[in-house]
């Protein structure tokens, strides 16, 4: 009997360990709280990122995204809550967790004194990797980043987009399971953004988990399997991009521009389910836009665009249109 009990105990322990290493989420955050100077910046955040998926953390400036990411990486000690990254408790075992993680930070912090390949070599050493192993990976990493043949290029000779791609290559030097990307395409031209998106999709195809923050809703919609909107330190919604659009917003949007647009629209408020006015633009959110579209030709001074509702509409509805600093 005693043997049976202890045997069962051992089995359940083994299950727990096995779950911790493989089955569990890539990142799970429970009840995360963090205050600075009495102000709660993260006020009880819960989310979970299944392995092999892309998770987006959206929110206006100051919403608590950066603090949440810093807590997840073990760089900031939370005031409350539990975090497990790659199966490791954070911050207790943050160094072990970070060994399996890559980070593309918001601001470029490549080494300006080094060439492209020296940047990768030196960064790989921080993971305890041997020089020979890193050097063997460098050509493939640079190739992945669209920087083939740039091994010896000095950093000053690289464009902004190239540096961003080099930062992505650097984040992959330890072949991580999980990659954090903090605004990966901010400041890039459309060509460079599309290249980054294509590479991120390849990483997902390889089974890596991506966790990204962005201010570009098209980026989030395109890449993320699930996303969460954070505001004032709280998650205000979470779901797949399509689900969020269906749940929060009328399917059709008509944007009307022109000096007369706000007055014209306010007089015809009933033509849509919801009307928002910002500057000289009126936004009609409609289930059926036909009556509105039929009325528009009678106002020749106005230009308009009819489109499907998107994530940006959800974001603006949930977090408001006023500026955040």
């Amino acid at each position: 009997m005693a043997a049976l009990i202890s045997g069962a105990g051992a089995a359940s322990m083994a299950d727990i360990v096995a779950t911790g290493e493989t089955g569990a989420a890539a990142l799970s955050v429970r009840g995360l709280r963090k205050s600075y100077g009495g102000q709660e910046v993260v006020a009880g955040v819960d989310f979970s990122v299944p392995r092999g998926t892309c998770f987006g953390l959206l929110g206006p400036n100051g919403a608590g995204k950066t603090t949440t990411l810093r807590c997840c990486l073990g760089l900031t000690a939370p005031d409350g809550g539990e975090i497990a990254l790659g199966g490791y408790p954070v911050p207790a075992a943050a160094d072990a967790a970070r060994a399996r993680v890559g980070v593309v930070p918001q601001f470029d912090n490549l080494d300006p004194d080094f060439t492209a390949s020296e940047n990768l070599l030196v960064y790989g050493r921080y993971f305890g990797l041997a020089d020979a192993g890193i050097r063997a990976r460098i050509p493939a990493l640079l190739d992945f980043a669209g920087l083939a043949g740039k091994e010896g290029a000095r950093l000053q000779t690289l464009s902004g987009g190239m540096k961003r791609r080099l930062t992505l290559a650097r984040a992959l030097v330890n072949d991580p399971d999980i990659v954090f990307l903090d605004e990966p395409t901010t400041g890039l031209d459309p060509q460079a953004r599309h290249l980054i998106w294509e590479r991120l999709k390849r990483l997902m195809a390889q089974g890596k988990t991506l966790i990204l923050t962005t201010h570009f809703m098209d980026e989030a919609e395109r890449l993320c399997d699930r996303l969460a909107v954070l505001d004032h330190g709280r998650l205000i919604t979470e779901g797949a991009p399509r689900e969020l659009i269906a749940a929060h917003i009328e399917p059709q949007v008509v944007e009307i521009f022109g000096d007369e647009a706000p007055a014209w629209a306010k007089a015809r408020r009933a033509l849509g389910e919801r009307l928002e006015v910002a500057g000289d633009t009126a936004f009609f959110y409609c289930r059926d836009a036909a009556p509105l579209l039929a009325a528009l030709p009678e106002a020749p001074g106005l230009r308009y665009a009819h489109r499907a509702a998107n994530l940006e509409d959800v974001f603006l509805k949930l977090t408001g249109r006023e500026l955040r600093d």
């Binding site: 760089l75 160094d95 993971f127």
Partner: peptide
């Protein structure tokens, strides 16, 4: 200025 330490702190080093 260069935020080199910040980059290192994203690795297993403390």
């Amino acid at each position: 200025v260069q935020k080199t330490w910040e980059a290192i702190l994203n690795t297993p080093l403390s």
